[in-house]
């Protein structure tokens, strides 16, 4: 026991608490830098500007240019290649098992990606499609 009445053990515990606070501060600053790398809102914003031909991802022989949101809405009730396309983009951007995308239209929901449970970033938005309706799209990232 020193002059202040503090034993070495108590002194040690106080030091451990200071170290834990320092670790928490370090982790907080690291997470802030990660947020710049993974921006699901930016991803959805860019994705909604994509224009493709209807025949690119469906069996329909129609070369009309449409927004990808239209193809995604069509995909909810008709199995098309667009979900594979989206899966490929997400995997290249964020890595395997680190993303989950879902989109729903008229009660039908499609899930892309096999990430489950905890996620760090999430964004959702309703994207307007050509027939005046909207498709709800959400993306979660690890």
């Amino acid at each position: 026991m020193n002059r202040e009445g503090v034993t070495a053990y108590v002194d040690c515990m106080l030091f451990l608490m200071v170290i834990m606070i320092a670790i928490a501060v370090t982790i907080t600053f690291n997470n802030q830098s990660d947020e710049q790398d993974c921006d699901p809102d930016d991803f959805l914003s860019r994705l909604s500007k994509t224009e493709v031909r209807l025949s690119d991802f469906t069996d329909i022989e129609d070369d009309t240019l449409v927004y990808i949101a239209d193809v995604m809405a069509f995909d909810t009730s008709n199995d098309t290649e667009v979900r594979t396309y989206l899966d490929g983009i997400l995997e290249k951007m964020f890595g395997k098992h680190r993303y989950a995308l879902s989109y729903s239209y008229l009660g039908n929901t499609i899930h892309v990606g096999d990430m489950e449970g905890f996620h760090r970033f999430e964004s959702s938005r309703a994207i307007r499609i050509s027939n005046g309706g909207t498709i709800d799209v959400s993306v979660r990232l690890m």
Binding site: D37, F43, R46, R53, D63, I89
Partner: peptide, 19 residues
């Protein structure tokens, strides 16, 4: 390394994401 996504003009009027 860092990966970005850009939507760029492609052929026949398409605008597609480039990784």
């Amino acid at each position: 390394s860092q990966t970005y996504i850009r939507v760029l003009d492609y052929d026949n009027g398409r605008k597609v994401p480039a990784v």
